[in-house]
């Protein structure tokens, strides 16, 4: 058993060079710790490059090892990707938010991880590097292979950061969840929206809900149904109906029935759209909230 705290990216990659299946990258380690621990762990949570939250070249750059608490408190993210702040604020508990990271939230590959749902709706890209120093960019939604299984190989590859196009003028995003209690709870369902308004019409949008599949899932049908429609109650109700119809959901004894989950997806989708549209309208009128 060894636990190494990598001081910089190079030393973390060095540790991956051996392609040892018993070596794993960890950040917060909160999820992994409750499972079988691999023999060699490389902790990347102290690498500055992986924890920074900044805006570079008009892109929001969020280190994969940024904690939920830091993301939730970030004014930078709040102004440009509000859905992510809302999602991060509702993960687990203050203690878990202080240690759990956005990268971990994605790599752990739980189907309804709040931050991941927001990231996918925001169109976030993941920047990865492998042990031979090859970099690639991948849409966050593509980092899932099956239920609770990441497409990323933690033995050879490292998730470095997320890139998000900030919400500009006329754009807004929001995240909503429904859970059985107000803290320390996994959601029964959650949803996130990002949209752009032009002359009161939905000019572009991205809608995501979970758990409706192994990964945070785009609601393609609902997006198509309301694209170009006016931002208003009629549209939101249409979205709720369409979303509830298009998703494939499972029921569970611990959370709720499939029928109720389906219904919640619709309600949450409409709620997220409503809030995102409000933000978009505010940003259009120029006054930032």
């Amino acid at each position: 058993m060894s636990y190494r705290i990598a001081k910089n990216l190079d030393s973390a990659l060095e540790a991956l060079k051996e392609k040892d299946p018993a070596t794993r990258i960890v950040a917060g380690a909160t999820d992994l710790f409750l499972q079988e621990m691999p023999a060699r762990l490389v902790d990347v949570s102290s690498i500055e490059e992986l924890t920074a939250i900044e805006e570079i070249d008009n892109r929001l750059v969020i280190g994969a090892a940024a904690t939920h608490a830091r993301a939730a408190a970030s004014e930078l993210i709040k102004g440009r990707a509000a859905a992510l702040v809302e999602a991060c604020l509702q993960v687990g508990s203050p203690q878990v938010r202080n240690i759990g990271t956005l990268g971990g939230n994605v790599v752990n590959a739980a189907p309804a991880a709040d931050a991941a749902v927001a990231l996918v709706a925001l169109g976030a890209k993941a920047v990865l590097v492998d042990s031979s120093g090859v970099w690639r960019e991948e849409a966050v939604a593509r980092l899932y292979s099956s239920y609770n299984c990441s497409a990323l190989d933690g033995c050879t590859e490292l998730l470095v950061r997320f890139l998000i196009e900030p919400c500009g003028q006329g754009e807004g995003s929001a995240f909503r969840r429904f859970a059985a209690r107000k803290a320390l709870a996994l959601p029964l369902a959650n949803a996130a929206a990002r949209l752009k308004l032009e002359n009161g019409m939905i000019a572009s949008l991205s809608l995501v809900a979970a758990p409706v599949g192994p990964a945070p899932t785009r609601l393609i049908g609902t997006e198509a149904a309301i694209l170009g429609k006016p931002a208003g109650e009629e549209t939101w109700l249409l979205a709720a109906e369409t979303a509830a119809e298009e998703v494939e959901v499972r029921g569970s004894l611990l959370r709720c029935s499939a029928a109720y989950r389906r219904h919640l997806v619709g309600i949450l989708t409409a709620d997220a759209l409503r809030a995102a549209a409000r933000r978009a309208a505010v940003s259009q009128s120029g006054s930032l909230t």
């Binding site: 209690r181 107000k182 320390l184």
Partner: peptide, 9 residues
């Protein structure tokens, strides 16, 4: 986690 007693919220 799953036997839910109320939290402060």
């Amino acid at each position: 986690a799953d036997y839910r007693i109320p939290t402060s919220l």
